[in-house]
Amino acid sequence: MNIFRLAGDMTHLISVLVLLLKIYATKSCSGISLKTQELYAMVFLARYLDLFSDFISLYNTVMKLVFIGSSLAIVWCMRYHRVVRRSYDRELDTFRYWILVGACFTLALVLHEKFSFQEVFWAFSIYLEAVAILPQLVLLQRSGNVDNLTGQYVFFLGAYRAFYILNWIYRYLTEPRFTRWISCVSGLVQTALYADFFYYYFISWKNNAKLQLPA
């Protein structure tokens, strides 16, 4: 564990807490893409298949349970909670994400570290996470102004993988045989997808104005 990875995990945890806070405090999920939440639930379920077979550390296990539990709870809330579900922007959140799921799974069948059930699903989860934010970014552009908590949620979600990139650089420089090309390339693509969001987020912060993404 290094400071970059810890910062990344904490930033990821903060993004989840901010989203839970938004939904719990405002009893509303307006501006949140259910599709992105469902994609993230798939990402965690596919990535943490080794949850019970490979014990790495208490921290690792606890964080996996937190990410799986929170993503499933948010999907449940947005679908079935009688108050929250009314504020879901159903007609704006129309990204056909099964194309993404199919493409990522096909890529994982071709490109993986080892051809085993667990490894293919692990590579699938890495590719899927890289594009999982797309429905959310599309929804932000369509829904015009973005409330603060939603903007902060997306910001922290994008920042966490940027910390992971620093972690991979650090591990590459300090550990002799460290190569994680699948994670690194996907992580770069994932962070690049947030580039324009980060730009408009910085502008809104600098001008102390509402976050506005151009339609």
Binding site: R5, D9, H12, R47, D50, D54, I56, N60, M63, K64, F67, E113, K114, Q118, E119, W122, Y164, N167, S183
Partner: peptide, 10 residues
């Protein structure tokens, strides 16, 4: 452990 893919990251 070496045959296992060491996915020690989240």
């Amino acid at each position: 452990k070496d045959h296992e893919s060491d996915h020690d990251e989240l």
